[in-house]
């Protein structure tokens, strides 16, 4: 093994290819609470059980929903070894949606499609890859989808490292 995955340089990504990522990740109650509070998200819908359980018509099933930023970050985490291990810079994201909610105990899975590859405008040792990432729960329901552009090393310039 090398320090970073030798199969995830810019040249390795082909438009139309789909990656079904290896691992699933169960979002535990502890992670869901602590990550929300770590980033100072004060929305009680994530951490006030008395409030949400008293009003299941307002709060889906009377359950605390997992903060979307955790869903997005975990799903991107599941994609990162295949898609971003040789990245240099995160450029941006767009058209992100959360079609279904996530609750503590749900298990997330991820897949990615390569939408576009192009040379970087300002350097010749890296290129830009545009992915569409998708996260699903254990029932196959989509919990997040988003497009993302990343600047990734070119093998021709960097592989000796």
């Amino acid at each position: 093994m090398s320090l970073t995955d030798p199969g995830s340089y810019y040249e390795n990504f082909t438009v139309g290819d789909i990656y079904e990522h290896s691992r699933g990740k169960t979002i535990s109650e502890t992670e869901h609470q602590w990550l929300t509070l770590l980033v100072m998200n004060t929305a009680q819908v994530h951490f006030n059980h008395a409030m949400v359980s008293a009003d299941p018509d307002t709060y889906i099933g009377g359950k605390r929903i997992v903060y979307g930023g955790i869903v997005l970050s975990t799903v991107l985490g599941l994609t990162s070894e295949d898609c971003a291990e040789n990245s240099i810079t995160e450029i941006g994201m767009n058209n992100g949606k959360h079609p279904n909610p996530v609750f503590a105990g749900d298990t997330l899975f991820a897949s990615s499609e390569v939408l576009e590859t192009r040379d970087a405008p300002d350097r010749d040792d890296a290129g830009i890859v545009k992915f569409k990432h998708m996260g699903k729960n254990q029932d196959g329901k989509v919990v997040v989808e988003i497009e993302r552009e990343v600047l990734i090393k070119k093998q021709a310039k960097w592989a000796r490292n």
């Binding site: 990550l35 980033v39 100072m40 998200n41 004060t42 929305a43 009680q44 819908v45 307002t58 709060y59 929903i65 903060y67 979307g68 930023g69 955790i70 997005l72 970050s73 810079t89 995160e90 450029i91 941006g92 994201m93 767009n94 058209n95 992100g96 949606k97 959360h98 909610p101 988003i146």
Partner: peptide, 27 residues
Amino acid sequence: MNVVFGLSVEDLSEQAIAQLGYFDMKF
């Protein structure tokens, strides 16, 4: 992203019930 978002929650979305999406995000 999560810290910038988290700091905004009390003003913007503490009374929200769903975060619908993310658009035109640039680092």
